[in-house]
Amino acid sequence: MTDRREWPLWEVFVRSRRGLNHVHAGSLHAPDAEMALRNARDVYTRRQEGVSLWVVPAASITASSPDEKDSFFEPAGDKIYRHPTFYDVPDGVEHL
């Protein structure tokens, strides 16, 4: 058996016809970016899911760690003053 190295993993982002931004759709393997884009077309847009595609090497993504979940996200939990709910909107301001 010859050496069958795995192709690198790519993350796929699809912008739907009515969508304003690209949304993560999933991942796939491909030997390079050009082929990754084509594989993404075949795997993730075969039912007209999108009009634009991004592929990103999965290795290029730096992700937050589950271990850091508490220190990263919990502190925001009780900072209700960060929500814009404490401002009185004067009458007559239509476009805020």
Binding site: W7, L28, H29, A30, R38, N39, D42, V43, R46
Partner: peptide, 11 residues
């Protein structure tokens, strides 16, 4: 060679 190519050739 890969499942991605299975799908591509199937399409």
């Amino acid at each position: 060679p890969q499942i991605e190519e299975d799908i591509a050739l199937g399409n």
